[in-house]
């Protein structure tokens, strides 16, 4: 059994943000206090209380907008999740990988992990920490819905057929089929790491135009001073 997966066809996403709000609704997550920062995108980034975020990037050529790219960012539920590999070194019950669906699940025991390390380990920069409790959070594939035969909240909310959910093999096939079709209009179209993840994006342009960490191996994560120092003290890890 290969578990479950998403196929997210970005050629059809027009950023209605139904998925972003549906995620908050199902998980009963509070709203963040935001302000308009000169963009339609809000919140500005993922957070401990925002698992799903529609990122928006204007693609500009010669000063003129060529495209407006929308990217509903979320955990990819990697087949071999690096976050779990790192987390298991400190607490094997902190990050779980559910057998039937393949869901990568963060538990409250993530408080026992080094949050920065977990975030660093993610090729897509997804996990976020609660600074007060040190607990980490991210998309849980609406596991409680899925085991009851329901679609994840984000998929259910999507009006355009951008978001799909089902058996991973089916999603992979759907992604390949759609890629072949879309290439006729968007020659740069590409699937994001289709063999490594359970959440397969179809990008109509180079993934880096959507987001620096849209696909793995785009480049190393950059560190601010605080993060750099945290790395320095890495040897003092918990027993």
């Amino acid at each position: 059994m290969d578990g479950k997966g998403f196929f997210i066809d970005l050629t059809k996403c027009h950023a209605c943000r139904g998925c972003q709000v549906a995620c908050k609704q199902w998980h009963k997550l509070p709203a963040e206090e935001t302000h308009n920062w000169g963009s339609f995108q809000n919140p500005q980034d993922l957070s401990f209380i925002t698992y799903k975020l529609v990122r928006m990037e204007e693609s500009v050529e010669n000063g003129k907008v060529k495209d407006w790219l929308f990217f509903p960012d979320q955990c990819r539920h990697c087949i071999q999740p690096p976050c779990k590999m790192v987390g298991d070194m400190d607490d094997e019950r902190a990050i779980l990988q559910e057998f039937e669906t393949g869901t990568v699940m963060f538990t409250a025991r993530t408080k026992n992990l080094f949050a920065d390390e977990i975030r660093d380990s993610c090729p897509y920069d997804i996990p976020r920490v609660n600074e007060l409790t040190n607990v980490l959070s991210k998309c849980d594939m609406c596991f409680d819905r899925v085991i009851n035969g329901k679609l994840p909240a984000c998929v259910l909310s999507c009006p355009t057929g951008t978001m799909h959910f089902g058996d991973l093999d089916d999603m992979k096939a759907m992604a390949q089929e759609r890629l072949a079709e879309v290439k006729k209009i968007y020659p740069n179209a590409v699937l994001g790491d289709p063999n490594a993840v359970r959440v397969i994006y179809l990008f109509q342009d180079r993934p880096s135009k959507y987001h620096g960490r849209a696909v793995a191996s785009v480049g190393p994560r950059l560190y601010n001073r605080q993060q750099a120092f945290a790395k320095l003290f890495r040897p003092n890890r918990k027993a």
């Binding site: 709000v21 709203a31 963040e32 935001t34 302000h35 308009n36 809000n42 919140p43 000063g63």
Partner: peptide, 17 residues
């Protein structure tokens, strides 16, 4: 509704560069 306000918190004016 806080979830909607979160996504579009304030009025804005779109202008060219």
């Amino acid at each position: 509704l806080p979830w909607l306000l979160e996504t579009m918190p304030q009025n804005f004016a779109e202008i060219d560069p």
